[in-house]
Computed example of a mutant assay.
Amino acid sequence: MPIYRMAIGTPGEMSHPDSIKSALAEFFSTLIFVFAGEGSGMAFNKLTDSGSATPSGVIMASLAHGFGLFVAVSVGANISGGHVNPAVTFGAFVGGHITLLRAIWYWIGQLAGSVIACLLLKFSTGGLETSAFALSSGVSAWNALVFEIVMTFGLVYTVYATAVDPKKGNIGIIAPLAIGFIVGANILAGGAFDGASMNPAVSFGPAVVSWTWTNHWVYWVGPFIGAAIAAIVYDHIFIGDVQHEQLPTAGDY
């Protein structure tokens, strides 16, 4: 099991230049991703006045988030590994590929990037609302929790298979493509039910700017559980006790 490999890290890691650079890379990658994803929903609402919870709205969200995440992961890969998601970082921590102290830097960068992206969207659109994630009619918080667990499991499992596994070889841009594709596909599956977040940072920025916290816990608890399960399953079954590598930070994506 990978749990025994989890490490707190050393105090000096918090002030190390590489940790700060990685946090900045996560900040900018998450800003790029959230600006594109949240902005696409705002644009669709403005153009159609029909809301994003329609078939065409879900398709637009899927494409915008899939394309945006492909770019965000790619531009951050050489510096931080391109997590762009607190749940991915948590999955890496559970698998022993990043220390807790370094993960805290990542989380700060990711959450700050999401909030700044939403503030920029609100300002540049003349005050349009950055809608927080919400459950559809007839969908309970527990239904949504299961959705978030399963969808995030698929995402983090994909990250492990294409970016973390030391046997992956040199697969170039396949990892960010696969990660973008699974997020886009999951939005098509779950977007009409709970918005298909899979990413606490993506949910956090709109919630802060709109100050809407209804069922917000679902978008933290679900992704973290799904990420932990994916990390344990993939690491235990497919990686095992082979020598581990730190989550890629030098072009392995």
Score class of each variant (00 low, 15 high):
157 Y>Q: 08
157 Y>M: 15
158 T>M: 09
158 T>Q: 02
158 T>P: 04
159 V>W: 02
159 V>Y: 00
159 V>S: 00
160 Y>S: 04
160 Y>P: 00
160 Y>V: 05
160 Y>F: 14
161 A>Q: 13
162 T>S: 12
162 T>D: 03
163 A>G: 14
163 A>F: 05
163 A>E: 10
164 V>C: 12
164 V>G: 00
165 D>H: 11
166 P>H: 11
168 K>D: 09
168 K>M: 12
170 N>I: 13
171 I>L: 15
171 I>W: 12
171 I>M: 14
172 G>N: 15
172 G>H: 13
172 G>E: 14
173 I>P: 06
173 I>N: 10
173 I>L: 15
174 I>T: 15
174 I>V: 15
174 I>H: 04
175 A>F: 06
175 A>T: 04
175 A>W: 07
176 P>C: 10
176 P>V: 05
177 L>V: 15
178 A>D: 06
178 A>V: 08
178 A>K: 05
178 A>S: 14
178 A>G: 07
178 A>W: 11
178 A>T: 12
180 G>W: 10
180 G>A: 12
181 F>H: 00
182 I>Y: 00
182 I>A: 02
183 V>M: 11
183 V>F: 08
183 V>E: 01
183 V>K: 03
184 G>T: 07
184 G>C: 11
185 A>V: 12
185 A>F: 14
185 A>N: 05
185 A>P: 04
186 N>H: 10
186 N>I: 01
186 N>V: 05
189 A>Y: 05
190 G>I: 07
190 G>V: 05
191 G>Q: 05
191 G>E: 02
191 G>D: 09
191 G>C: 10
191 G>V: 10
192 A>V: 10
193 F>G: 02
194 D>G: 13
194 D>K: 04
194 D>L: 08
194 D>P: 04
195 G>K: 03
196 A>S: 15
196 A>L: 11
197 S>K: 04
198 M>W: 07
198 M>Q: 14
198 M>I: 14
198 M>H: 06
199 N>S: 08
199 N>K: 05
199 N>A: 09
199 N>F: 09
199 N>V: 01
200 P>R: 05
200 P>Q: 09
201 A>F: 03
201 A>M: 10
202 V>C: 04
202 V>E: 06
202 V>K: 13
202 V>L: 15
203 S>T: 14
203 S>P: 07
203 S>H: 04
203 S>N: 07
203 S>F: 09
203 S>I: 06
204 F>P: 00
205 G>K: 07
205 G>C: 10
206 P>G: 09
207 A>E: 04
209 V>W: 01
209 V>P: 00
209 V>R: 00
210 S>I: 08
210 S>E: 12
211 W>V: 13
211 W>A: 14
211 W>I: 12
212 T>N: 15
212 T>H: 15
212 T>A: 15
212 T>D: 15
213 W>Q: 04
213 W>Y: 13
213 W>E: 02
214 T>P: 00
214 T>G: 10
214 T>R: 14
215 N>A: 11
215 N>W: 08
215 N>C: 07
215 N>L: 07
216 H>D: 09
217 W>E: 06
217 W>L: 12
217 W>F: 14
217 W>Q: 10
218 V>Y: 01
218 V>P: 01
218 V>H: 02
219 Y>H: 01
219 Y>D: 01
219 Y>L: 03
219 Y>C: 03
